[in-house]
Amino acid sequence: MTAVAAEVPLVLDSVLEKLATDLGDHDGSMRRRFINNYVELWDHRYGRVSGAVLARDADDAMDAILSLKISSSMVGAGRLGRMAEHLEGLVHGQLFDAAATLLDELRACGMSTTAKLRSYHLA
């Protein structure tokens, strides 16, 4: 994992609190639904990123990485968002071999992140 990504928490509580405030979510139901949607889409998002990186398809990889980065930012998945930023730079530079070496770490980070987010979903 990149040193910068390791310094970022898996989930930024402040972002989830702001999300609830921005949504006017007094009972937490909308935040839980938003988190649940993010968690449910993780496997699909990872599959798109990894497939495009391994296929060396820069356009599809960028689309998939940006989707992951933006959605992670919205739900407070700080470390995963930072890893997506790093992958974005690698793909932009056509460094597909370097990007491919990060896919296992990205998957592990995503699994840890979704597990932590599930705990918010249950709260």
Rank of each mutant, 00 (worst) to 15 (best):
L23R: 08
L23K: 11
G24S: 10
D25S: 15
D25H: 15
D25K: 07
D25E: 08
D25W: 14
H26Y: 06
D27F: 14
D27I: 07
D27T: 07
G28I: 14
M30W: 14
R31G: 09
R32A: 15
R33L: 15
R33E: 05
R33H: 12
R33A: 13
F34Y: 12
I35F: 14
Y38F: 15
Y38S: 03
V39P: 00
E40W: 07
W42Q: 01
D43I: 10
H44C: 09
Y46E: 01
Y46R: 03
Y46G: 02
G47C: 11
G47E: 01
G47W: 08
R48K: 14
S50Q: 07
S50F: 12
A52M: 01
V53N: 02
V53M: 09
L54I: 15
A55L: 12
R56F: 01
A58H: 00
A58W: 00
A58C: 04
A61L: 06
A61H: 04
A61Q: 01
M62G: 05
A64H: 02
I65C: 02
L66K: 08
L68W: 07
S72Q: 06
S72C: 10
S73I: 05
V75C: 08
A77R: 02
G78V: 06
G78S: 04
L80R: 04
G81K: 01
R82H: 12
R82A: 09
R82V: 07
M83H: 02
E85C: 12
L87R: 01
E88K: 13
G89I: 13
L90D: 04
L90K: 13
H92R: 13
G93K: 03
Q94G: 07
F96E: 05
F96R: 04
D97M: 14
D97Y: 09
A98Q: 07
A98K: 09
A98V: 11
A99V: 05
T101N: 08
T101D: 11
L103D: 03
D104I: 15
D104E: 05
E105N: 06
E105Q: 13
L106R: 04
R107S: 10
C109R: 09
C109I: 08
M111F: 07
M111K: 13
S112G: 06
S112Q: 06
T113C: 05
T113V: 07
T114W: 08
T114S: 07
T114Y: 07
A115T: 12
K116L: 11
L117H: 06
R118P: 05
R118S: 05
R118T: 09
R118L: 09
R118Y: 12
S119A: 13
S119K: 15
Y120F: 10
Y120A: 02
H121T: 03
A123M: 01
